[in-house]
């Protein structure tokens, strides 16, 4: 079970800082971005009334998430944030699914990825809040219901980042650990495929959806 603790890293010393890069995560993230760009290119290459398979899938995503975003935000606000929500879901879905292929690892298995995405959602949500309400009204909300609740409100906002990123990380990491341990224990062919189907496909989809929905909800809480 040594694979669990083994991480392939690049380290670099820049101006007195010792920087460590998780090479696997970076390579896999870039791979997924490449795959998504290729998917986008194929889906939009020949749009027509009789769509090609890529276009069908893309339309499915776009339609589902357009409706979801429109429900949560109002129409013109949804136009701004819909591309973010839809591409976030597609990125996460592919991230969680890619682990089922041999020699591929989920980038979401690394806390750095999920924490980065969580922080991105946090900053976007607060930027949206300041932009719609103005800074005074935005800042005033932290002093509700009474002024000394301010620290608790701030902690509450920061806790959202922690919870959203640890949820995704914990589920994907847990799934891959379970698959690894069970594969070591049974040496069989029968059980791991079912586990891959459950953790890789099912839990991966559910958690990608949960992450996306929560980002959307955090934005909608800030703008309302």
């Amino acid at each position: 079970m040594e694979e669990l603790t083994k991480v392939w890293t690049w380290s670099l010393d820049v101006a007195g800082f010792h920087l460590v890069f998780n090479a696997t995560t970076i390579v896999m993230t870039l791979t997924i971005m490449g795959l998504l760009i290729a998917f986008g290119w194929f889906a939009t290459r020949q749009t027509g009334l009789v769509p090609n398979p890529f276009q069908v899938v893309a339309e499915l995503f776009v339609e589902t998430f357009w409706n979801l975003t429109k429900d949560a935000l109002d129409e013109d606000m949804a136009k701004t944030y819909f591309p973010l929500i839809c591409s976030l879901f597609m990125f996460l879905l592919l991230c969680n699914w890619i682990g089922i292929f041999p020699y591929m690892e989920e980038p979401t298995k690394d806390l750095n990825t999920t924490l980065g995405l969580g922080l991105m959602g946090f900053f976007i949500a607060h930027y949206a809040g300041i932009k719609t309400k103005g800074f005074a009204a935005y800042a005033k909300e932290y002093f509700q219901p009474v002024f000394f609740m301010m620290p608790l409100n701030v902690i509450g906002e920061l806790a959202k980042v922690i919870s959203i990123s640890f949820r995704l990380y914990g589920n994907i990491m847990g799934g891959s650990i379970i698959i690894l341990v069970v594969s070591h224990l049974v040496y069989g062919l029968l059980i791991p495929p079912f586990l891959y189907a459950f953790f890789g496909l099912f839990v991966g989809t559910v958690q990608a959806f949960v992450f996306t929905m929560l980002t959307l909800v955090y934005i909608s809480v800030q703008v309302k």
Binding site: F166, G170, N171, M173, G174, G175, I177, I178, V206
Partner: peptide, 13 residues
């Protein structure tokens, strides 16, 4: 159920 199970998965981790 899959979402409720996450805390069980955290315990496992």
């Amino acid at each position: 159920q899959a979402v409720s199970e996450s805390t069980g998965i955290y315990s496992l981790v």
